[in-house]
């Protein structure tokens, strides 16, 4: 029997649970290593995303005018360097065209074929900025991401460890202060 009191209680429970549900993925996905999901039928954990180690590695020396504040350390790459979950990047310069070679490396080590989705979440408004991802093994350009507009770029990553150098191409015509944010999503190909 549904009483007035019970209805009110149920609604309250939902209101508390919903924010939990929204927050939960953020806490969960930032963990390094394997990500497991519970198989609904057997109740046993199954491997969902086999990203053993993925994140940003700092170069030995940064280009002039670039400062980087890394976030949490997640793991270490094959060469023993720290792999960071996030980067805060600061570029100080004057008007003109600038190329900043290798401001950071993107490192992905995986036991399964996955894809990388680069999403421009907050584009720049005043400066023209392009991030170029280049494979450090073959020097091939993997991706050129225009950071001046919202966008979504998807590229496959093969099994093993890959290191991509991130180069910034900057073009600014007049004094300005600008910000951008890029999200990198790693996922197994959807079936």
């Amino acid at each position: 029997m549904i009483t007035r009191a019970r209805v009110a209680y149920t609604a309250l429970t939902l209101a508390i649970c919903v924010p939990l549900y929204v927050l939960n993925p953020w806490v969960y996905v930032l963990k390094p290593g394997y990500t497991y999901a519970v198989d609904v039928v057997s109740g046993r954990p199954v491997l969902a995303v086999g990203v053993e180690c993925a994140g940003f590695v700092l170069p030995a020396a940064l280009p002039q005018g670039v400062r980087v504040a890394p976030g949490e350390v997640l793991c270490r790459d094959v060469r023993g360097r720290e792999v960071f979950e996030s980067l805060r990047l600061y570029v100080d310069t004057t008007a003109g065209v600038w190329v900043y070679p290798t401001v950071a490396y993107l490192y992905v080590s995986t036991s399964r074929a996955i894809y990388l989705e680069v999403v421009v979440e907050k584009p720049t408004r005043y400066v023209n900025l392009t991030a170029v991802l280049r494979d450090t093994r073959g020097r091939d350009t993997l991706l050129a991401v225009s950071l001046g507009e919202y966008g979504r770029y998807r590229v496959p990553v093969s099994v093993g460890s890959s290191t991509y150098a991130i180069t910034l191409h900057l073009e600014a015509r007049r004094p300005a202060r600008d910000t951008f944010r890029v999200g990198i999503y790693l996922a197994t190909p959807s079936s």
Binding site: L20, V29, Y36, V49, R88, L89, V127, F180, L186, A187
Partner: peptide, 25 residues
């Protein structure tokens, strides 16, 4: 709700870069 949260979370691992660009005259 917790189960829904776990299943949802397993799709992506997320990394980000936030940048600030200062251009002087």
């Amino acid at each position: 709700v917790a189960l829904a949260g776990v299943v949802n979370a397993t799709v992506f691992a997320y990394r980000w870069i936030q940048g600030t660009v200062n251009i002087s005259g």
